[in-house]
Simulated scan of single mutants.
Amino acid sequence: MIPFLDLHKINNRFREELKASFEQSLDTSYYILGPNVKKFETEFAHYCETDYCIGTANGLDALTLILKGYIEIGKLKKGDKVMVPANTFIATILAVIHADLEPVLVEPNPKTYNISINEVESAFTEDIKAIIMVHLYGQLADYESLKTISKQHNLLLIEDAAQAHGAISNSKNIKAGNLANAAAFSFYPSKNLGALGDGGAVTTNDKELNEAISLLRNYGSKVKYENEVIGYNSRLDDLQATFLSVKLKTLDSDNERRQQIAQHYLKEIKNPKLRLPFYDESKNHVFYAFVVELENRDDFINHLNKNAIEWLIHYPIPPHKQKALQRFSHLKLPITEQIHKRIISLPISPVLTDQEVNTVIKVINTY
């Protein structure tokens, strides 16, 4: 069996360092907002080349707290509309709803699966105050065009960078996390930079937003038992922070390995039944997922199962068709709906061997 993602093998590379980190945390007994959180926040801000990083409990909270933070400092107000990709994980839309804002779902570019610039321009109305761009599957959205639109209409531009740790723009050599007013990251274990549990972070260069989110994530408090605003409990766990500091050291080399595997897939997969992902061989795609598209997905899945190749679908049901979001079920989003019916993700990870990659290619070419 070729696993879709072997988390044991990925994390076992760091076994001794992770054990030492655990023992250090156990001995010092700093468990909540301790020195390891501050250390990782400093390291990740430096990595993303931003002024600030605020650790949160998870990626959904990171994105929600950005929006709540903007409300707190008066740059958004409850009920404002926020453009989001229709083709995304539901968390992007949930964050908008949790912040008492109104999502406006926008179709993707079928070439990249990221939010369509043409559709953004068509969907704009005066009550839209922000755009969330998702770097889906690890490929940067067209942030330069979105920045231009945002400046023209005085909109906030926010990154959902949950799948794009370390992705770098082609033209400006800027990393995910520093491409907009603020960015949300997830450190869910499957991510390119994954914790051994839940975790998330916000990166920004906005001092006022940084201060607002730092308050909001900790009960609205700077000083214990003194609460300045209505806050939340969403703090990056100190132990997870020290694990992330260990794993951050190899993020770039892990991303390079993912890109190498992707290039090999793109070069060697010759089956005309599959539509392979768009990739310009730059660092703007870090391949959180290698997503292919085809008409008869069920038949292809049977073929992979028979040949012991694990797979995953990112994602089987589009957000507007989820029971939780029934109020959007009337929307006509044919591109999004077609994508969700046709896509499937193939194994890709930094610990996948050349032999395993070649086996995947051979199995696919015999389909």
Results as ranks from 00 to 15, higher is better:
residue 279 Y to F: 10
residue 255 N to D: 06
residue 349 S to K: 08
residue 140 L to E: 05
residue 223 V to Q: 13
residue 247 K to W: 00
residue 172 K to N: 10
residue 316 P to G: 10
residue 70 Y to C: 03
residue 281 E to C: 13
residue 219 Y to W: 08
residue 244 L to S: 04
residue 69 G to T: 03
residue 364 I to N: 12
residue 44 F to C: 07
residue 154 N to R: 14
residue 310 E to N: 13
residue 105 L to Y: 06
residue 269 I to Y: 05
residue 19 K to Q: 14
residue 323 K to T: 14
residue 283 K to W: 01
residue 31 Y to W: 14
residue 11 N to L: 06
residue 311 W to L: 01
residue 256 E to C: 02
residue 173 N to A: 13
residue 320 H to C: 05
residue 17 E to T: 08
residue 322 Q to L: 14
residue 4 F to H: 12
residue 172 K to A: 01
residue 117 I to L: 09
residue 42 T to L: 06
residue 180 A to F: 00
residue 364 I to S: 09
residue 96 V to K: 05
residue 248 L to R: 10
residue 349 S to N: 11
residue 71 I to E: 13
residue 238 D to S: 06
residue 97 I to V: 15
residue 61 D to A: 04
residue 157 L to M: 06
residue 1 M to Q: 11
residue 162 A to E: 12
residue 68 K to E: 05
residue 187 F to R: 06
residue 228 E to V: 08
residue 128 I to G: 05
residue 31 Y to C: 15
residue 161 A to K: 02
residue 240 Q to S: 08
residue 183 A to G: 03
residue 201 A to D: 01
residue 198 D to S: 12
residue 43 E to S: 14
residue 119 E to F: 03
residue 158 I to W: 00
residue 8 H to I: 06
residue 188 Y to H: 15
residue 276 L to N: 09
residue 93 I to S: 05
residue 162 A to T: 08
residue 4 F to P: 06
residue 315 Y to E: 11
residue 240 Q to H: 12
residue 210 N to F: 07
residue 239 L to W: 00
residue 347 P to C: 09
residue 302 N to D: 14
residue 5 L to F: 07
residue 142 D to P: 00
residue 187 F to H: 07
residue 319 P to H: 10
residue 11 N to D: 12
residue 109 N to A: 05
residue 337 E to D: 15
residue 286 V to G: 04
residue 181 N to Q: 05
residue 81 K to L: 00
residue 28 T to M: 12
residue 298 D to P: 02
residue 1 M to H: 15
residue 324 A to M: 08
residue 148 T to N: 14
residue 268 E to D: 10
residue 239 L to V: 12
residue 43 E to H: 06
residue 154 N to F: 08
residue 19 K to Y: 11
residue 289 A to E: 12
residue 317 I to V: 15
residue 191 K to S: 12
residue 339 I to T: 09
residue 312 L to K: 15
residue 159 E to D: 12
residue 287 F to P: 07
residue 115 I to V: 15
residue 47 Y to R: 01
residue 59 G to N: 03
residue 231 G to L: 04
residue 180 A to L: 01
residue 273 K to E: 11
residue 176 A to C: 04
residue 336 T to S: 12
residue 367 Y to E: 07
residue 319 P to V: 07
residue 169 S to I: 03
residue 265 Y to K: 11
residue 285 H to N: 12
residue 218 N to V: 13
residue 220 G to L: 02
residue 122 S to G: 03
residue 159 E to I: 04
residue 314 H to L: 14
residue 44 F to R: 00
residue 4 F to I: 11
residue 361 I to T: 07
residue 135 H to I: 03
residue 28 T to R: 15
residue 61 D to L: 05
residue 94 L to E: 15
residue 192 N to A: 13
residue 365 N to A: 02
residue 155 L to Q: 00
residue 22 F to P: 00
residue 156 L to S: 09
residue 350 P to I: 01
residue 327 R to Y: 13
residue 358 N to P: 07
residue 141 A to V: 07
residue 309 I to G: 00
residue 139 Q to F: 05
residue 82 V to L: 01
residue 112 T to K: 04
residue 306 K to Q: 15
residue 286 V to H: 03
residue 47 Y to S: 10
residue 217 R to N: 09
residue 296 N to C: 11
residue 148 T to W: 03
residue 94 L to C: 03
residue 110 P to K: 14
residue 256 E to Y: 13
residue 34 G to E: 06
residue 108 P to Q: 09
residue 285 H to R: 10
residue 39 K to G: 05
residue 215 L to R: 09
residue 93 I to K: 08
residue 208 E to W: 01
residue 227 N to L: 08
residue 238 D to Q: 04
residue 15 R to S: 11
residue 66 I to F: 00
residue 299 D to V: 13
